[in-house]
């Protein structure tokens, strides 16, 4: 999408899980690029594979097949020790602050850990200094230094996760729903903070979220996922003004806008996301689509470039 050398290039990434009922296609043939210093927003409903994509890129789950080129290196070929080193540059902020924090570690211990393990700051006092700095960066009061995750609300817990990810000064961060647990006023602070850090440190983000107004604000490009597949990808502005896929259109219309002046025509989708187990080679959105044609139930639409930089997988535009 961008002519610059991409920092991250993902090719035909697949992650299948073996289940008793068959093969679960969590991520199915996903390809994209993110240029250095840019943000790719990834949106979609729970279970669409957006988080698994983020994790597969960092090899937190081992991809089934595909390529993940980070700064020219296919990281899927790295051995564990090389991968551990590589992870200093690739961090993740997790979705659920409950399960991503060790309940028996204090805030300061949690934030300090990556600094200690990677020998970034060998001196204890200097490390503590850095922990305080990181806590301040993410808006955690000093008095919380020795508190445990269970004593804090979800918002503060998420801040610990952000501080921990920032600790190693990475250049790429997978942000997996980083602000979903935060209050609006705090959410805005964190979004501004992440943006400011991006321009200051030239960070590259993959921003996974279900919150479309946030992704619009935050991203350069946006990819929409549905049932493991990328069904539309375009520059943010294009996607919001000219959504081509019926699912994207429904998704955008479902955002409750905090304004009285504009009543949107809401497309209320029927049903829920279908099963990702052994999906048939047809359009996976067909059963919920208001424009469904015969063809959609017989063939699988491929992702094509409908206009410059705007990719879509739908027979309506083919």
């Amino acid at each position: 999408m961008s002519k610059q050398q991409p920092l991250l290039e993902v090719k035909n990434l697949k992650k299948y899980f073996q289940t008793p009922r068959g093969m679960l296609h969590a991520v199915d043939d996903v390809s994209f690029k993110i240029a250095e210093g840019k943000t790719l927003g990834v949106v979609g409903e729970s279970g669409c594979g957006k988080s698994t994509t983020g994790r597969a890129i960092l090899r937190l789950v081992e991809p089934t097949s595909g390529e993940v080129n980070f700064d020219g290196i296919d990281i899927l070929k790295l051995n564990p020790e090389q991968m551990r080193k590589m992870r200093q540059h690739m961090q993740i902020i997790f979705q659920d602050p409950y399960s991503s924090l060790d309940p028996r570690k204090t805030i300061s211990q949690t934030i300090e850990e990556p600094l200690r393990l990677n020998h970034i700051i060998p001196d204890k006092n200097a490390r503590i200094e850095r922990v305080f700095e990181l806590m301040e960066t993410v808006g955690l009061a000093e008095r919380l230094f020795n508190t445990y995750p269970h004593e804090l609300d979800g918002g503060r817990r998420q801040r610990i996760g952000i501080a921990r990810a920032l600790a190693l000064n990475p250049n790429f961060i997978v942000c997996d729903e980083p602000v979903s647990a935060l209050d609006v006023s705090i959410q805005a602070q964190i979004l501004n903070l992440l943006k400011e850090l991006q321009s200051r440190l030239n960070l590259t983000y993959m921003f996974i979220t279900h919150n479309l107004s946030v992704v619009n604000h935050f991203s350069d490009d946006i990819a929409v996922m549905y049932l493991g597949e990328m069904i539309e990808m375009a520059p943010a502005e294009d996607l919001f003004t000219q959504p081509l896929h019926p699912y994207t259109q429904a998704l955008l219309s479902a955002i409750p806008a905090p304004t009285l002046n504009k009543k949107m025509d809401r497309i209320i989708l029927k049903g829920e996301i279908a099963s990702p187990i052994e999906p048939k080679p047809i359009c996976r959105f067909a059963n919920r689509c208001i424009h469904m044609q015969d063809r959609c139930r017989k063939e699988h639409p491929e992702l094509i470039e409908a206009s410059t930089g705007h990719f879509v997988a739908c027979f309506l535009v083919q």
């Binding site: 609006v184 006023s185 705090i186 959410q187 501004n192 107004s213 946030v214 619009n216 502005e237 955002i255």
Partner: peptide, 16 residues
């Protein structure tokens, strides 16, 4: 002011 504006994506958020 803290809410991202869907109409104007360049607008900077003004958090409290």
């Amino acid at each position: 002011n803290s809410l991202p504006n869907l109409e104007d994506r360049k607008a900077k958020l003004k958090p409290i």
